[in-house]
Each structure stands twice: as structure tokens, then as C-alpha cells.
């Protein structure tokens, strides 16, 4: 495979850079429907590659990718690291989580430092909403948002969309987008960047999205994002095609927002009985890591045919490979992308 083959326009999209005219990937809110579809299409080749035993290309050979994580992460960091390495890039991880590097001028100084080291792409996770955009303004290379505060986690939404697309395809329900698909997102919507990115991505692709949370964990005005709102999971889950559960942070279920974990499970846990209220074939998703027995029961999480949770992890690598490929095309001199 040569670089040019990989980035050849598929015919459905504008040629070259016009297919994805962004330097950075900071938020789904910045993307048009066709740009999301382009990213998903481009990821398909990496899904295939990742299923072979030899999973390496030299596409990004010589490029340096820095994963700057200001917040603890295991799976997202690993996923980005594997994605970069499979594309042949030199990947460096910087852990600055929770410790000294929390104050903002340090954040900008860190950005300037990384920039001076001539990174070719920087992947950032930070605990404050908008932090990735702030850094993107200060550096000369593409910036990928791996989660900023309660704002967005765009690659998670893209990998969820890719996962859904594959699952629907295997059932013979393949279609260009998710028009008419009923999705419920349940959990801590207020603090969830995964929820915000997924709402934007799924609605952009035509899905009918409901969000469900206790009142204290539901942000006000969320209806303006084109979703319907419910506090009653039994009602919200009725007849849906996809149930997307969110992780509930332990510190939020000990009296501050939720009286207790078992009470949360009572009202919002995805049990087998509750899943039975959804469409008979309804698919189950969770961004991980799961609190088994709290927001999701093991017997649901581990259902072979219905649970897409491990598939989400697989698609994560492919999506991140696609993003890294597309965002570095300009620097690599790919025709039509300078």
C-alpha cells in the first residue's frame, strides 16, 4: 500500500484536503456530516489491517507523535499509542496527570515546549473543558482531543459510530448513516464528554437520540442539542435499537449526586430485565471502564451477540489510525493535502 492509495478519494467525498479541511480534531461539533462519514470510511482499511497478523505500515515513518495526558487514562492512551505505532510513527507518551502540571500557564508552557520539540501531531487529554483548543492555538502541528473536561471526546464518538456501522452491517442492515436508529444514552450526562460527542455524532448521522439520567446529572438545556430527555430509564429504553451506558464515577454515587451505588443500579442499571424492554435485538455499548453491577450487569456486558463493548475497543485503534493518517497528510506531502 502506498500513501497515495490510502488517501485516494472514494468518490463520495470531495478530492484531497476538501474531504477533511481541518488541521485539528478538537470536537465533533466542528465537523460536518460528510466529514464524519469520511473519517469512518477511512478507518475501514485499518480495521482490516488490524485483523491481520502483520499489523504494521510505514505510512507515518519518521513522524513524532506525542500523547500528552494531563489526566489518568489507560485504555485511551494505549489505543492512541498502538495506533501511532502501527502506522510506523515514533510515539512518545507524556504523563502529567493530576500532579504538578495542573495550573494553566504551565499548560501553555507545556504546549510551547512540545511544539519546540517539533512534534508532528499532539494528542491531548486534559481535565478542563476547552483545554485542547487552547493548546491547539499555541502549536504548529495537528492536535487531537483525547478528552477535555466535560466537553468532548471526539474519537470515542467516532469509534462508537464505526462499531455500530459494523454491527448493523453484519446484521444486513447496512446503510449510509443512522437515519431512524433509536439510541438511548444513559448515565452521568452532566459530566460526560463521551455523551456530548456521541449526541453530536449520532444526531449528525440521523439517529434519534434519547438521554436518560437522574435530574442532578442531567445538564440543563440539553434538548437544544436535538435529543429528548428522560429521567425514567424503563420508559426511555422502550423499543430502542442501541443502549449506550456511561460510566458513573465512584465519587458521584456516595451521597453527592446519588444516594448509593445500589440505588443507582435500582433506577439506572442495565439489567437483563431492563434490556428486555428495548428492541429484541438491541445492541449494548459502554465506553469503559465498566462498574460491573452498578451501571451495567455482567450478564448484559458479556452477552456475545448483543454487547459491542470489546468491539468498541477494537474499533478505537482503527479510528485513531485514520485520524492520525488524515491529520498528518499535509505534513507528509500527500498530493492534494498540502
Amino acid at each position: 500500500m502506498s500513501a497515495n492509495d490510502l488517501s485516494a478519494p472514494s468518490g463520495r467525498f470531495p478530492a484531497g484536503r476538501m474531504a477533511f479541511p481541518h488541521r485539528d480534531l478538537t470536537a465533533i461539533s466542528q465537523l460536518e456530516r460528510h466529514e464524519i462519514l469520511y473519517l469512518l470510511d477511512q478507518a475501514e482499511q485499518w480495521v482490516e489491517l488490524n485483523r491481520q497478523s502483520a499489523k504494521h505500515t510505514d505510512l507515518l515513518s519518521g513522524l513524532t507523535i506525542i500523547n500528552a495526558f494531563f489526566e489518568n487514562s489507560t485504555r485511551t492512551l494505549l489505543s492512541f499509542e498502538i495506533a501511532g505505532k502501527r502506522l510506523g510513527a515514533d510515539v512518545v507518551n507524556m504523563h502529567a496527570a493530576t500532579s504538578s502540571v495542573k495550573k494553566g500557564e504551565t499548560l501553555i508552557d507545556t504546549a510551547i515546549t512540545l511544539n519546540a520539540m517539533r512534534a508532528d501531531a499532539i494528542v491531548i487529554r486534559h481535565g478542563s473543558s476547552g483545554a485542547t483548543g487552547l493548546i491547539a492555538d499555541k502549536v504548529d502541528c495537528p492536535v487531537l482531543n483525547a478528552g477535555d473536561g466535560s466537553h468532548e471526546h471526539p474519537t470515542q464518538a467516532l469509534l462508537d459510530a464505526l462499531t455500530l456501522r459494523h454491527a448493523l452491517d453484519e446484521r444486513g442492515e447496512a446503510s449510509e448513516d443512522f437515519t431512524g436508529l433509536k439510541v438511548v444514552i444513559c448515565g452521568d450526562i452532566l459530566h460526560s464528554r463521551v455523551a456530548r460527542s456521541n449526541i453530536l455524532c449520532l444526531t449528525a448521522l440521523g439517529a434519534d437520540v434519547r438521554v436518560c439520567a437522574p435530574p442532578a446529572l442531567m445538564p440543563s438545556g440539553i434538548e437544544a442539542m436535538g435529543v429528548s430527555v428522560s429521567h425514567n430509564f424503563d420508559a426511555a429504553i422502550k423499543g430502542v435499537d442501541v443502549v449506550m451506558m456511561l460510566r458513573l464515577q465512584a465519587e458521584r454515587m456516595s451521597g453527592q449526586f446519588i444516594p448509593s451505588a445500589r440505588e443507582y443500579r435500582h433506577l439506572y442499571g442495565l439489567t437483563k430485565a431492563r434490556l428486555a424492554l428495548a428492541d429484541a435485538e438491541a445492541l449494548v455499548m459502554h465506553p469503559g471502564p465498566m462498574n460491573r453491577g452498578v451501571e451495567i450487569d455482567s450478564e448484559v456486558a458479556d452477552m456475545d451477540t448483543r454487547s459491542l463493548i470489546t468491539r468498541q475497543v477494537e474499533m478505537g485503534v482503527a479510528i485513531r489510525m485514520a485520524c492520525l493518517d488524515i491529520l498528518t497528510r499535509g505534513a507528509r506531502g500527500v498530493e492534494g493535502w498540502s
Binding site: 473543558s129 476547552g130 456530548r196 445538564p219 440543563s220 438545556g221 442539542m225
Partner: peptide
């Protein structure tokens, strides 16, 4: 302030 903008931005908001 709680509302659409704060929700879209993911900022801590109060009514």
C-alpha cells in the same frame, strides 16, 4: 449559567 451554552461547552454551571 446553566443553559444550552454551558451544556455544549461542558462547563460547571449553576442555575
Amino acid at each position: 449559567t446553566s443553559g444550552e451554552i454551558a451544556t455544549r461547552l461542558g462547563l460547571p454551571a449553576a442555575p
